[in-house]
Every structure is written in structure tokens, then in C-alpha cells.
Design a protein around this nucleic acid. Structure first.
Lengths: 233, 233
DNA sequence: TTGACAAACGGACACCTGTCCACTAAAATG
DNA sequence: CATTTTAGTGGACAGGTGTCCGTTTGTCAA
């Protein structure tokens, strides 16, 4: 029986790329407990995967390879990470948290400096583009293999969306943009080109540079402002 | 002769959703020949697939099922369609061609009526959204399994991009929008939310209606106009 | 017609992903 | 410490994709 109960749930969250911080915030009280052998295995798996990915590229490595390299059964591997995408997300967890912290700090600074909200949004998009640029293979793998129940979305995307929404709301408050807009959908539209698969298509399929992508998105955001003038930023 | 000639190559193109018109234009002269037994098999496969998809849903049907239902070996199936996505695209070929023709006709009409180019673009995006809406499962399957060589993109997307580009150029010519913009990238940014996978995320993951998506995109396009006023359309 | 050859055929097979389940061992309990 | 509970383990296996290759068959030319 039973056994796996709580574990299954946790992995569902981890699958969404939540780091402990986020997890704690969004789910203050959850089934705990990961046995120490389990934790050791988790770490062996992560480091084996990191090595293999670095050596052969993300797409050339399969789950069996990883379980062999980590000296762990397949069942164990899949118990910790339901699929390759989840594993990739876990590998980025730390860098994701760092990135989020930096963004938060910078936006705070800009607000203190009275930087316009739209300009903050433009900065954020640029930062996000560079983050995507650095982690394209892992992000693509993750976005490909993770299953989304209707009404649910992966945590990284939720965070991005929340951030953009917050800035747009701020821009409404400061009278930078018109208030009668569908802000949630607008945020999704702005973020669409940064979905990993689309981003890769733009980069590799179309040959656009990150700068070019960034410039166009910033142009679009600049045009949101009420008077329609070009952004000064 | 011939009839089916050049079929093999054609299938490579069809994989990209090209109809005969497009094909002819882009590839006036190509290796010919598809044997008549091959053509018969192709049709048996397509109709078997259509039936199975209708009965059980696209994702519930696998290639082995299709080959069995079509009374064809697996090898034959894969010779005709390298993967499920290619097959899906082939199933939409006719409707895709029809849609393209209708779009072309309507845009021609609008141009004759001196409708503004940006308004034409807004109409086009709306039409595209409804096309996506009708074919989401097939489009998603197709976009998932087709491999893109760097520098290449699937034909449906090429056509969409060309259309948007043409309208944007027109809008520059009629002085509706500023000329100093990165039109190719802008077109991609506008189309990004309509990539099948992203579109499905917006619909199912976020619960947006097609109308809501359409309204926001049209808002974005409206803001491209030089003076920044709201669109009259 | 007939012979030759490329195209087409079909099913066995290699490879991967993800699940299942009988067994093991960590941790909680008394 | 002994016992019970339950998370954790690992490998066999089911299911699906796509490839390979020996055999068959349409087509063309003589």
C-alpha cells in the first residue's frame, strides 16, 4: 500500500520547477519527508545527469543512461523525476531562484529610482531573453515533456506571468497605459515569443539574435503607452 | 502519365502543408513519380487515419493502429508519412489550401475597398485564430513531431509569416506605421501566440476564449499605427 | 511479351519511455 | 532493542516510435 503517497504529490510540484522558496510560499504546509537514502540518490542522479548533459548534449542522453551513470534503478530515477523535463527543471532550480531574486532586486531598485513601469517591463523582458538564451536546451526539453492539466501551467511561466502582470498593473496605476485592457491576456501575448520552443524557433529557425528579439518586444511594449510616442528608454 | 509523379518529393513538401499551388510556385520542376499502388495505399492510410482520429481522438491513436486499419505494413506507413505529424498535416492539406484561398480573396477584396492595411492584418489574425481553433489537435500533433532543420520552418508558418509581412509592408507603404521597424521579427512576435502549442496553452491552460485572444492581438496591432490612436476597425 | 530495375511492401527489430511490483531498509513506536 | 510501518529500490515489462532489409511488384524499354 500506499507507500508512495505524499511523494507523488511533491514530485508533481517539483515537476513545475518550484524551488523550496517558491514551494514554501505557495504551499506552506505539505506532506514532508524524504528519506536520507532517497535524498542521496536524488543528488547522485542530478550530478550524473549534469555530467552526461554537459558531455553529450541534453537531447543525446536518455533516462536509462542517466540511471546507469547514477548507479540507480530505472524505477528509482522515475520516482524522483517523472520525466526528463522534470529532471531538467530540477537542474536549473538554483539558477532559476537566483535569477528571480536578481530580478526582484533590480525591479525594486528601479521603482525606488522612479523608473517608469513600462521601462521596468522592458528591462525584465530583456533579462528574460538572456536567461532563455543561456538555458535553451534544458528549457526546451522541460517544456516539451511536462504535462499540463487544463487550468494549470508550469511554475516558471506562472512566475513570469505574475511579474509582467504586476508591472502592467503598475503602469495602469501610474497612468502610463490605458486601464481598459485585458491585462492577463496581454501579458501572455507579450511572453509568447519567449516560450522555449518558440524562442528556439526564432533563434535557430529564423536566425534572429537575442538583441533583435529584445528590441522588437521592447518596441511593442513601448507602444502600449497611452500617447503612443516611442519609448524613451 | 504520371498522375502522381513526383509524389515522393511532394510528400516531403506536403509534410510542410504545401498545397499544389504553393508547391508549383516554389518548386516548378522536381523528381517525379509515385507508383499507383503507392498512391492507393496513401489514400487508404489517410482515410483510415481520418476515421480513427474522428472516433478516438488524435492522441489516442498510434501509428500501428493506423497501419492495421489501413491494411498496410508499418514500413509502408512510415514510407509515406515519416511521423504522425506529417500525416496530420496531410489530412489538413485540403482545408489549408481552401483557407489560404479564402484569405487571399478576402484580402484582395479589402484592398479594393481601400481598407487600411492594419485593419486587413487584424482581420487576418482573427481568421487565423478561428482556423487554429478548429484544427488544434492536428496542428499540435504536427508542430510537435516535425523536425526543423536550422534555417527551415514548416510551410504553414512560412505562409502565415509571408502574409503578415506583406500586410506590414503595405502598412508602411500607406504610411500607417513607421518604416524603421524590424518587420520580419515583428511578424513573428505577432504570430507567436498562434503557434499551435502556445495557442493550446492559452485556450486550455489559461481558459481564454478565441475572442479574447483575438481582441488582444488586434489591440496590439492597432497600436502599431503611427499616431497611436485606437483602431477604428 | 518479356526482362530488368527501381520503387514499394511489410513485418521483425532496436530503442526509449514510463509503469509495476516484489523486495529492502529507514525511521517511528513502544 | 524489537517491532511495525511505510518510503524507497531496481529491474522486468508493456507500449509506442521509427528503421532495416529481404521480398514483391509496377513500369519501362526492347
Amino acid at each position: 500500500m500506499i507507500a508512495i503517497a505524499g511523494r507523488r504529490f511533491m514530485s508533481t510540484l517539483e515537476l513545475f520547477g518550484m524551488n523550496d522558496l517558491t514551494l514554501t510560499i505557495l504551499n506552506p504546509d505539505l506532506p514532508r519527508h524524504e528519506r536520507c537514502d532517497a535524498q542521496a540518490n536524488r543528488e547522485r542522479i542530478l550530478s550524473a545527469a549534469a555530467q552526461l548533459f554537459a558531455a553529450q548534449g541534453v537531447s543525446a542522453v536518455n533516462m536509462a543512461d542517466i540511471s546507469k551513470a547514477a548507479k540507480v534503478g530505472q524505477g528509482t530515477l522515475y520516482r524522483r523525476f517523472a520525466n526528463k523535463g522534470e529532471l531538467c527543471l530540477a537542474l536549473m532550480d538554483h539558477q532559476m531562484a537566483t535569477f528571480q531574486a536578481q530580478v526582484l532586486a533590480q525591479l525594486g531598485r528601479m521603482t525606488q529610482d522612479h523608473t517608469a513601469k513600462l521601462a521596468q517591463l522592458q528591462w525584465f523582458l530583456d533579462a528574460l531573453i538572456h536567461f532563455n538564451e543561456m538555458h535553451t536546451p534544458l528549457l526546451c526539453e522541460a517544456s516539451q515533456s511536462i504535462y499540463f492539466a487544463p487550468g494549470t501551467r508550469p511554475a516558471p511561466y506562472i512566475w513570469q506571468h505574475m511579474t509582467v502582470m504586476g508591472l502592467l498593473r503598475g503602469a495602469v496605476a501610474t497612468n502610463e497605459i490605458a486601464p481598459d485592457q485585458d491585462l492577463p491576456m496581454l501579458a501572455d501575448a507579450i511572453l509568447a515569443p519567449l516560450q522555449p520552443a518558440v524562442f528556439r524557433l526564432l533563434r535557430d529557425g529564423n536566425g534572429y539574435t537575442p538583441e533583435r528579439i529584445s528590441a522588437t518586444l521592447q518596441g511593442l511594449v513601448g507602444r502600449l503607452r497611452k500617447n503612443g510616442t516611442l519609448p524613451t528608454w
